[in-house]
Nucleic acid binder design. Structure first.
Lengths: 212, 212
DNA sequence: GCTATATTTGAACGTGCGTTCAAATATAGC
DNA sequence: GCTATATTTGAACGCACGTTCAAATATAGC
């Protein structure tokens, strides 16, 4: 479809540039002029392909949320009902972890956009819940299979803590690098994986094992 | 100092309005015209009192970070060196928890601003590290007293997970209310306190107790 | 190769942005 | 009560914003 020398179609180039800029400065911190200049396309094209700036923002989110949700669902479905909490958490955060740390700049920027909208009341229902709640509900259902006596609220709150820890970590803000004087590195996959799954698993166990 | 019928001085009113609007839409999503209209003051006054829009933003953060840091430091200093991890976590998150959920709209809005800047690479070093790292370092020091054999990286990463869970939770985005179908409530202090301290404590224990 | 559709171009629209400034007014020290 | 300083006013600056549109160009179906 593309001309032979083009690396990507116009909509793709716009999405890539928008993603990179939204990751750095958020929805309102980026203009269509910045995006089109970075993408090397005319100013009017985002509105032609995505309807509006908001439509472009939504398209940036959805492009990868579809991939992410599929991978998470597959990973959850691959587990038996007897799966340990470590496996469930791994199935939920693993795909995002690997993508955001190994999937190139696009996925890293995507994780930064997700972290920003996940922490803003403005985008919570409109984007976060709409895009990510179905898989979250399935994850929670599986946790309740693993911990049948857990109180409903304990499971939801555990998931919420997981969500906060995960989104901030994958956003790679540089905070831990600064705070630790470069002892820890927010871009090191094994550093994170080795610690996030045990940390969160322990939290789920403490809260959901049934000690009222 | 104020005229008798005035509820607050001009700088205070500007800070309050800015805080409320920044909480909803972030730094770039708010204009000085919106802020001054809400505050009922002239457009030029934020620049007179705070130098620039960025200066106002910084002032919004610092006004309450000073209070927060003092309360956290006092709570940490009130603990003996034998304090359990639950006590250390309580000392760190307790002041913010009570303020953001019981301190009125101002503190709730402040928690939302903090969540947004804590999850954006743009503000990490400039604001987050500058404002909050000193107390974080003291907290981490105390955790290492409690877990002398813990690896340095494990303590930093545990703190990072705590940070992500805490900032998102206190921001009260409404996500958990939506996801749980109003079973859980992001504005319920006891709901949160009862669960966040045990969840995070279990994570710290698992990671920092020394099982290499 | 012609035609119908899809895409790109380049310019313009009205609006709102952060900041600045001189003039007007209020406040505090003596 | 006068004077020096602090604060407020109201208007303007140049610039960038998201969106729109008719014209130009490229693409695909037959």
């Amino acid at each position: 479809m593309n001309k032979k020398t083009d690396k990507a179609s116009t909509p793709q180039r716009i999405l890539d540039s928008a993603e990179a800029l939204f990751a750095e400065s958020g929805y309102d911190g980026v203009s269509l002029r910045m995006i089109t200049k970075l993408a090397g396309v005319e100013l009017a094209l985002p509105n032609y392909h995505f309807g509006s700036k908001l439509g472009l923002f939504r398209a940036v989110i959805q492009r990868r949320s579809v991939i992410l949700n599929n991978e998470r669902m597959e990973a959850l479905n691959a587990l038996s009902d007897r799966a340990e909490i470590e496996d469930l958490i791994e199935a939920f955060i693993g795909p995002f972890l690997r993508r955001s740390l190994f999937g190139g700049e696009g996925w890293r920027d995507y994780a930064r956009v997700v972290a920003q909208i996940a922490n803003s009341p403005r985008w919570t229902s409109e984007i976060m819940s709409a895009e990510f709640d179905p898989v979250a509900i399935e994850f929670i259902r599986r946790v309740r299979v693993r911990f049948p006596v857990a109180k409903t609220e304990d499971v939801y709150w555990s998931f919420h803590f997981l969500l906060g820890a995960m989104t901030m970590t994958f956003a790679q803000t540089g905070r831990i690098d600064l705070l630790s004087g470069d002892t820890c590195h927010g871009s090191d996959l094994s550093e994170i994986h080795l610690r996030m799954v045990p940390f969160l698993s322990a939290g789920f166990c403490r809260l959901c094992k049934g000690s009222t």
